[in-house]
Design a protein around this nucleic acid. Structure first.
Length: 563
RNA sequence: UGGGGCGUGGCCAAGCGGUAAGGCUCGGGACUUUGGAUCCCGCAUCCGGAGGUUCGAAUCCUCCCGCCCCAGCCA
């Protein structure tokens, strides 16, 4: 087992599981990932998935996928499907252990009857509003429901009639009889079942009473033989109730352990808020590449490997934290650096005419596919008299430390020749529209026989051979590190970054990019990693920038601007 | 003023009585046909604060301060 003989520090959950194993409290390790199918999975869920599936695997155990589908009005099959797809994409496998809390409705009902029979549960006729008022406040105890002491026979009969559909929605509940004065509000006679006359995506109209999370979760864990029920901090207050049900029922008792959920800077990880971004049109959908959803990240160009690595690096603890999104970006760069094939693509083209290059001549120059991976081989890229280079790679009046192209200066065209700018062509407004240049034929491939050096190497594309493309540049979704942090009552939408998307229409890529399949990821040399978007099916190639390359020059300029 | 948690460098996070791991960020340098990658070097005399115990404390005790969660017939 990797954990016991390693000296690597382990987080408190692994330590607890290890301890339970050594002490023989649980004969094996069996966890579960229990999403409610009411939305798309995001990177915060990825953390939980990595913990649930990861720990099980490390201990040679198993992890179930169980949908917590106890609230039919919020849940949909669309979500159960997307959730499964995202978990598989992330790289985890629940094999044949796909379960639903709704699979246990009959058993749960039987458990409820058992509690009623023990005098530990009762049917309550209070309205939702009345229950709230009877519950008391954080500092004052609640008071007991007038229905708390119904007879066993009456409770049994009423509960059966609730199930039979004899009562209107919301008219009655089944409640646990615990302690209306408990400091922990979850223990003040919590609702176990409520009446909802709504069809369930799996059980149809077979039920009109549905168990609450607290009455379903622990028992589901128990039925599946879960050993460690890992969840987030907000359930800490529920653990006494989790334990209470299991103890009262006298059934197998798993151990619940809570950890802090993930918060990421400059974005949000709340299904409710993400839904608002979608519904109010701030993004194009759940899979908008700016979204922190797994489907959004996938479309953006994030890899499962990078996300898993990220989840490992952030650790597991109980401290509320706000993880720097730069770490996520770092993980992606690190993964893609060694895997993504390199290609040249000019985002903002500037036309270059090489005056001493023969008209009509085309050469095929060898380019390395991935310097980090010798096995990736080389490819041939066409070179000709008219090229496009990046507008940013030319400055008529170069500032200090700028060592790209400028009048009279020489640079290297990657994998091609040294190029010197001899003249600048402008339009009526004074904008540079074309560069007249010369090349040195003896520098083919990029090295000068006379040993002279150039300070910069820039990418280029042959105008006649280039493939047109649209490139979408993304920036952080919010301008505030913590969008939830309120300034005088404004909500998170006030902090949406209006410039989170920049569309570049006239890009030009090297010919090899033609026909690239959606989902494939390239490094556009000197710029970043780009993922072919499904929108490419509409005709022109569309690429999403997943993350930029680190950019020393941009840093210098930024520092300069800041003074 | 109730209950439950948490406080280690800019952001995460080890550490569990013996004198502050690691990663990210940031700064500096080397190298470079991506100002990429890689490689060096630097970055907490101090662990929310104050007392106390001890030869010795981030680690034990006491008090204080701060932050988060809970009053859904949501999960």
């Amino acid at each position: 087992m990797t954990l016991s003989d390693s000296n690597q520090p382990v987080d408190f959950i692994r330590a607890a599981v290890l301890d339970d194993s050594k002490a023989g409290r649980y004969p094996r390790v069996h966890t579960r990932f229990p999403p409610e199918p009411n939305g798309y999975l995001h990177i915060g869920h990825a953390k939980a998935i990595c913990i649930d599936f990861g720990i099980a695997a490390e201990f040679g155990g198993q992890c179930n996928l169980r949908f917590d589908d106890t609230n039919p009005v919020k849940e949909e099959v669309e979500y159960v499907e997307s959730i499964q797809q995202d978990i598989r994409w992330l790289g985890f496998d629940w094999e044949d252990r796909l379960y639903y809390a709704s699979d246990y409705f009959e058993q749960l009902y039987e458990y409820a009857v058992r509690l009623v029979t023990k005098g530990k549960a009762y049917v309550c006729d209070l309205s939702a509003d009345e229950i709230r008022r009877y519950r008391g406040t954080l500092t004052e105890p609640g008071k007991e429901s007038p229905y708390r002491n119904r007879t066993l026979a009456e409770n049994l009969e009423l509960f059966a009639r609730m199930r039979a559909g004899e009562f209107p929605e919301g008219s009655r509940t089944l409640r646990a009889k615990i302690d209306m004065a408990a400091g922990n509000i979850n223990l003040r006679d919590p609702v176990m079942y409520r009446i909802i006359h709504a069809p369930h995506h799996r059980t149809g109209d077979r039920w009109c009473i549905y168990p609450m999370y607290d009455f379903a979760h622990g028992q589901s864990d128990s039925l599946e033989g879960i050993t460690h029920s890992l969840c987030s901090l907000e359930y800490e207050d529920h653990r006494p109730l989790y334990n209470w049900y299991l103890d009262q029922l006298e059934i197998y008792h798993p151990r619940q352990i809570e950890f802090a959920r993930l918060n990421l800077s400059y974005t949000l990880l709340s299904k409710r808020k993400l839904l608002r971004l979608v519904q109010e049109g701030h993004v194009t959908g759940w899979d908008d590449p700016r979204m922190p959803t797994l489907s959004g990240l996938r479309r953006r160009g994030y890899t499962p490997e990078a996300i898993r690595d990220f989840c490992e690096r952030i650790g597991v603890a109980k401290k509320d934290s706000l993880v720097d999104i730069a770490l996520l970006e770092h993980c992606l760069r690190e993964d893609l650096n060694r895997r993504a094939p390199r290609v040249m693509c000019v985002l903002k083209p500037l036309r270059v005419v090489i005056e001493n290059y023969p008209e009509g001549q085309v050469e095929e120059l060898a380019a390395v596919n991935n310097p980090e991976d010798p096995g990736a081989g080389t490819r041939r890229v066409p070179f000709s008299r008219v090229l496009y280079i990046e507008q940013d790679d030319f400055r008529e009046n170069p500032p200090p430390k700028y060592y790209r192209l400028s009048p009279g200066r020489e640079v290297r065209l990657r994998y091609a020749y040294f190029l010197q700018c001899v003249d600048v062509v402008k339009d009526g407004q004074g904008n540079v529209v074309e560069l007249r240049c010369t090349y040195d034929p003896t520098t083919r491939g990029g090295d000068a026989p006379d040993g002279r050096k150039v300070k910069a190497t820039i990418h280029w594309v042959s105008a006649a051979h280039a493939v047109p493309a649209e490139v979408r540049l993304y920036d952080r979704l919010f301008v505030k590190e913590d969008p939830d942090e309120g300034d005088e009552g404004q909500d998170f939408l006030a902090h949406v970054n209006p410039n989170s998307l920049e569309v570049l229409a006239g890009c030009r890529g090297e010919p090899g990019l033609a026909g690239a399949r959606p989902g494939s990821i390239y490094q556009f040399e000197r710029q970043g990693y780009f993922c072919v978007d499904p929108d490419s099916a509409k005709g022109t190639l569309v690429c999403n920038r997943a993350v930029s390359l680190k950019d020393e020059w941009a840093r210098i300029e930024k520092a300069r601007r800041a003074g």
